[in-house]
Design a protein around this nucleic acid. Structure first.
Lengths: 191, 191
DNA sequence: GATTTACATCAACAATTGTTGATGTAAAAT
DNA sequence: ATTTTACATCAACAATTGTTGATGTAAATC
């Protein structure tokens, strides 16, 4: 096992535990036990408990931002943009289900300054979604509805996707989920 | 302030804190401070920290079960049943948003025996939803889709509703949300 | 009026928490 | 061959945790 492998293994174990028990309920001793080593040894892999959460959150947040920025530049219709965003969420949730979950369940355990930064990033992401609905409603691509409610419900219906992938899901299931979500969105929002 | 009022006040404060910070991160001293009294005094209102969570979870779970049992007895079409379930979730989430949130976010902090009981209740609830989709797909009321995926996505899209009500929402917003959810469901699942 | 119930404070407990320092060894890089 | 990096253990810390017992007072019930 290489150095990189061992570090990856630590991260994987830590993320799995935090996912299963929650950040607060996961102790450094829990992680150590699951790695088969002493508590103090954990600090060879991470600076602190919070930095585990911190890195995961901001890494994954950045991936979401990259994805949405790319598709916002393209000349897609509002409907096509929503479909691309669904794909983005499914892909990330498939590739890193634990970390996708942290973005929803564990961000509040960040310390104050990091928390503010995180909330700022999240708000920006939500604004992009809002804009898509706002534009799409004005242009008659979507049904007439409060764009705020629409963007919130849209986000909510794709936020939970990671749950389907935490126990290992087949590529086929992934496609089926993506298709279904796309159908629901089109059926629910589009005119 | 009557005795009942004071107990209700304690419950309200405790629930708000647990909602905001999470069960593990909320200490008995936090609750005491927000009540303006000493820590030990809290134990005049509750047997233990866990019993606060326990009571909330099983109380609210019972309300959901009552609601769904009643509508399953009625001779409704699958589509009408879904609409009634949406109403049920919106109503409960409107009346007790914190407790609705605990059903999703905090149940895992129950101790072993209570946890098993809770999971059993939840599984039963999910089975009812599954049955509705299974029936509705066979009868051509719904589009052709894996009933398991359908029931999971359906539940996911109504699970978050409490978020809209935690900071006090107007009756008008409540109606608008209910209408929108109904439209999305009909558009997304029905043929 | 006497008694029970509800509410309050203080001090203290045992357990658990994240983290550090001292110390050592095996592997990698120079 | 030497030095640095990575990994490991042990003991201990200060702080925080849920909870209890002793003790007292005000309010409600009888």
């Amino acid at each position: 096992m290489s150095v990189a492998d061992r570090r990856a293994n630590f991260t994987k174990i830590a993320h799995r535990l935090i996912y299963e028990k929650g950040y607060k309920a996961t102790t450094m001793r829990d992680i150590a036990q699951n790695m088969g080593c002493d508590v103090a040894n954990i600090y060879n892999y991470t600076k602190s408990k919070e930095s585990i959460l911190e890195q995961s959150l901001f890494d994954t947040s950045a991936i979401f931002h990259e994805g949405i920025k790319k598709l916002m530049r393209n000349e897609l219709t509002p409907k096509e943009k929503l479909i691309e965003i669904i794909k983005l969420h499914v892909t990330i949730s498939y590739e890193r289900p634990y970390q996708a979950a942290f973005l929803i369940d564990e961000w509040r355990h960040l310390s104050n300054e990091k928390l503010n930064l995180f909330l700022k990033e999240r708000h920006q992401y939500e604004s992009w979604i809002f804009d898509i609905f706002n534009t799409g409603i004005m242009s008659n691509d979507f049904r007439i509805i409060d764009p705020k409610i629409a963007s919130i419900t849209f986000l909510s219906s794709i936020r939970w996707v990671h749950n389907q992938f935490v126990n290992g899901s087949s590529p086929k299931q992934r496609i089926e989920l993506e298709v279904h979500l796309t159908n629901c969105i089109i059926g629910g929002y589009c005119s």
